[in-house]
């Protein structure tokens, strides 16, 4: 019986690959940062330090730490605390999970051949998951969680039914008290090509109208004059940039 169990175990390991903990190594420390392992005390973080799962990492003011996690790059920015929840690697798959307690992290998730990559950054509000992209995630009690895909596309979801993705200029923002995130393009509000005032004039046309009001009849706006000069048609090139 024991021989059968041993044989089954060996076959399982061979079939599914050898799952193991992979290295989370600090590659650079700017300023000061510290880490605490489960049940341990705070230690100062230096470049070259390798930390195990369950480790809490915290950075000070004007400080940051760069990590290499399974071949991916992550920067823990100033006044930030993270926890390494999971860092597993097999020959075919890597899975990393980082909890962002507060602060900001930037992660660059590299495509490593045919290796299936799962890289999650979790806050109390939502989880982001990425592959082959670069992202910046922030979390705090006032602004909640915000996420931006610096390149590629980023997926976000939580247990309350939020499931979305961001790319380009779209920006994810969700506070703990809200059921739904802010509109993804809320940051683009007000960034119009030109601001139009009443009478269909731009602010420049309105200024011209005030300067040359003596020349232009009261019933005519600069737009009317332009209409007369060009026969009422004009060619306008509009460059629409979608996020």
């Amino acid at each position: 019986m024991k021989k059968t169990t041993l044989l089954m175990t060996i076959l399982s390991v061979l079939a599914f690959g050898t799952a193991g903990y992979s290295a989370v190594t600090a590659t650079a420390v700017n300023g000061y940062a510290a880490y605490i392992t489960p049940g341990g005390a705070w230690n100062v973080m230096y470049a070259g330090v390798t930390i195990p799962e369950g480790t809490l990492v915290s950075t000070g003011m004007f400080s940051s730490v760069d990590f290499n996690i399974d071949g991916h790059d992550m920067t823990v920015e100033q006044l930030t605390t993270i926890k390494i929840y999971k860092s597993l690697v097999t020959g075919e798959e890597t899975e990393s999970s980082v909890g962002l307690s507060y602060g900001s992290v930037t992660a660059k998730i590299n495509k490593i051949g045919a290796v299936k990559t799962k890289f999650n950054i979790t806050t109390p509000v939502a989880t982001s998951s990425v592959r082959g992209t670069k992202e910046r995630i922030s979390n705090g009690p006032i602004r909640g969680m915000s996420a931006q895909a610096l390149s590629g596309r980023l997926s976000l979801h939580n247990s309350r039914g939020v499931r979305t993705s961001v790319a380009g200029r779209s920006f994810f923002s969700l506070t703990g008290g809200s059921a739904r995130p802010e509109p993804l393009l809320a940051g683009e509000r007000g960034n119009s090509l030109t601001k139009v005032t009443p009478d269909g004039m731009t602010s420049e046309e309105q200024q011209a109208g005030q300067i040359y009001s003596d020349v232009i009849g009261n019933s005519e706006s600069p737009v009317d004059i332009v209409d007369q000069l060009t026969g009422g048609t004009a060619r306008v090139n509009v460059n629409l940039v979608w996020p």
């Binding site: 940051s64 920067t75 920015e77 100033q78 507060y102 930037t106």
Partner: peptide, 16 residues
């Protein structure tokens, strides 16, 4: 307090 100070430090050009 920490979040506000962090945002201030970022706005004032301090290292992230």
């Amino acid at each position: 307090l920490i979040e506000t100070i962090r945002v201030m430090a970022e706005k004032s050009g301090g290292a992230k």
